[in-house]
Amino acid sequence: MFARVSDTDFNQQRLYDELVAGCAASPGGIVTFTGLVRDFNDNGKIDGLSLEHYPPMTEHAMRSLAEQAISRFALTNAGIVHRVGHLSNFSQIVWVGCAASHRASAFDAACYIMDTLKTAVPLWKKEFQNGTGHWVKAKASDADASLAWMKDNDR
């Protein structure tokens, strides 16, 4: 398992290889997700964003999340990498990898990690628009998605 905050870009193949090398047993399926910086928000075009975090807590929360996913979905391994600092439009921002014996567990675990990360890991986005930075507001839909996993322990 790995969970890291990074102030530089990541290489998806290297992360995939690290995930496979760390598998507790031979996986039957691997799901990876890569999040990118969009070039727009509800108010129009944006010009990149910056990500602030709470250093000691961020990786601790990400590690806990990966361990929960491994336990809940019987994964053979899981990895999370999240970037911080200034990111330009279309940059890679987050990577999640889940390896499992069967694909359903790997897909579910990747969704669980992303939905939970958006409400439980201390990271904050500030988007830049027309030369001014605006903190991104948390979305009710993200909170609902995270809550759904808490209510539905059989998923």
Partner: peptide
């Protein structure tokens, strides 16, 4: 003790 707004990573 840390105080912060609802998180917006991902």
């Amino acid at each position: 003790v840390a105080f912060f707004p609802p998180v917006t990573g991902g």
